Amino acid sequence: MTPLKLAVVVGSTREGRVGDRVARWFIDEAGRHDDLTITVVDLNEYDFPASYPAEPTASIRAFVSEVGRAEAFVVVTPEYNHSFPAPLKQAIDYAYDEWQAKPVGFVSYGCRSTGLHAVDQLRTVFTALHAMTVRDVVGLDLLAGEPTPLCTDELRRDIRALLDQLRWWGLALRNGRAARPYVS
């Protein structure tokens, strides 16, 4: 079977962010599964215009193309003021059809809430885009410190549950899109 194309979207662009390190940690754990092809889509690598909507630039087209190639997503997001970062919303809005009929999972981080307020709001956004969000989330409390390769058994179980759900939905939706194009 062809491996599922999983895009890990790093949703923070702030200077001094930890999102890139959280994404690397998740990818190290997820990379142990040979039925996934993992691509990193780091929003810091794209130059999005300050206003929306905007004429599609080369950078916007590159981002949309990455989203279009992927068959499933993990969005790595911090929680800022009970929500997710504005650059992440802007990036999500530049793609539309490319998100449709694909599963989205979340790795969130914050303080005590572990970023779950951001995930709740992102679920609403992705539902409006006709994407399927999976139930389980990997949530990190950064007050406990950044994750390491020696992550706890509980976090490994969370990752396994997230990846199991993404694989199931990703393969089911891949087959569905192949049998009949999704129409919204």
Rank of each mutant, 00 (worst) to 15 (best):
T124I: 13
D97A: 10
K5N: 02
A128S: 14
D93C: 03
A131E: 02
E55L: 12
Y109P: 06
L171P: 02
G139N: 14
F126K: 01
Y182W: 11
D47I: 05
T13H: 04
G176A: 10
L162Q: 06
R177E: 03
T114E: 15
Y46C: 03
E146R: 09
E15P: 09
Y182N: 08
I159C: 10
A178D: 09
Q165P: 00
A179S: 13
V134I: 06
S12C: 15
V40P: 04
T57C: 11
L142V: 15
L166A: 04
Y52L: 15
R61D: 15
Y94D: 04
C151F: 14
Y182A: 11
D141W: 03
Q165K: 04
D42W: 08
G115F: 03
S12D: 14
R160Q: 08
P181Q: 15
L142K: 10
F126P: 02
N175S: 13
G145W: 07
H33G: 00
I92P: 01
S59E: 08
I38Q: 04
A62I: 09
R32E: 02
A144H: 06
P56A: 15
V41E: 09
G19N: 00
L88C: 03
V40H: 04
L140H: 10
R17G: 06
E66N: 11
A86M: 03
A91H: 06
G115M: 05
S59Q: 09
R167S: 10
A128G: 09
V40I: 15
T124C: 11
W169S: 08
E15I: 15
D158G: 15
T127G: 10
V67R: 01
M1K: 01
L171V: 15
L155W: 12
R21E: 02
A128Y: 15
T77H: 03
R160C: 06
G16I: 06
L43I: 08
L4D: 02
D20P: 03
D164Y: 10
V74T: 02
G31K: 09
Q121P: 06
D141A: 11
G19Y: 00
L163R: 09
V125G: 07
Q121I: 04
V107I: 11
Y80V: 00
D164T: 11
G170A: 03
R135N: 05
E29P: 01
G170W: 00
A50V: 09
N81Q: 00
R61K: 15
D47P: 03
Y46A: 04
S113I: 10
T39R: 07
L150I: 01
T133N: 04
R160T: 11
V76A: 02
A58F: 10
